[in-house]
Design a protein around this nucleic acid. Sequence first.
DNA 1: TACATTTCGTTGACATGTCATCAAGACCTC
DNA 2: GAGGTCTTGATGACATGTCAACGAAATGTA
Lengths: 149, 149
Amino acid sequence: MDTDWLSEDEEQAWRAFRRLLVALPARIGRDLARDSGLSAADYEVLSTLSEKPDRRWPLKELAAKMEWSRSRLSHHAARMQGRGLIDKEPDPQDARGCLLHLTDDGFAVLEQAAPHHVVSVRSRFLEHVSADELAMLRRLSTRIADLPD
Amino acid sequence: MDTDWLSEDEEQAWRAFRRLLVALPARIGRDLARDSGLSAADYEVLSTLSEKPDRRWPLKELAAKMEWSRSRLSHHAARMQGRGLIDKEPDPQDARGCLLHLTDDGFAVLEQAAPHHVVSVRSRFLEHVSADELAMLRRLSTRIADLPD
DNA sequence: TACATTTCGTTGACATGTCATCAAGACCTC
DNA sequence: GAGGTCTTGATGACATGTCAACGAAATGTA
């Protein structure tokens, strides 16, 4: 195999895939902003927080779960706090840390947003992918995302 | 089918795919910055400009080709001009417009960057995808990216 | 205990993208 | 060719992300 360049097939596939990499998140993000006033990042924070019964996560752990830097989450959480979607509380286990807490308002916004978001993911993506393709895509995505950084 | 939520399979596949959507461009972008001091956006501009024999494109057309806004390309081109990678020239066909021109320096940077970038795309992506998977991914990507916005 | 090291979240400087707006020029219609 | 309208690229305000540096608190080690 020529390792110095891409074959025609590889080139075309890589081009097509890059288009998808850009277009799909952009479309779903626009839907989310239009339907619920949330960015994709907002939605990810809210939905991850809502997974815990008490709606609280240490910032460090939430950042790790979402694969965000602590800096990014700190900045983003400050903005979301300003909008009343989340709270910050001192961490009783570690005086350096803080807990991010999904407020009732934030939970209500998430509950309103979720069904629209599902419709968006379906209509922009899932509806156009067969079960076989989806299974393949999942295996492939996991395989590649799990490679070392 | 329940249109109100995602099945377990759909949920898992969507999660895995979203991880890929974030991780793959980030890794390839980091490789590019490390090997050549270019961002993915820089590389896209340089390589698209290099496709024309005279290395010139009207800004409007380049933006359309890359599916960028004119504003984004204008900002980005100004920064790349500051680094000497490209020039701006008046468009002889349209006094409102301008031509973006790949400089010799820009071309040299692209020539240096390209083989490293190919290695990166191979090692982070293509090597881990079979020919069948790649063909399926290409069809799927084209199908979805071609949907209306 | 004392001291060095590590970890936590915050902060500020900066890079990059979006959006609305603008002046200049092209285009259209009469 | 005159006047209104659209298009082009630039610009400024703003949102969001990265990176390096920091103070405070936890942890490890003598």
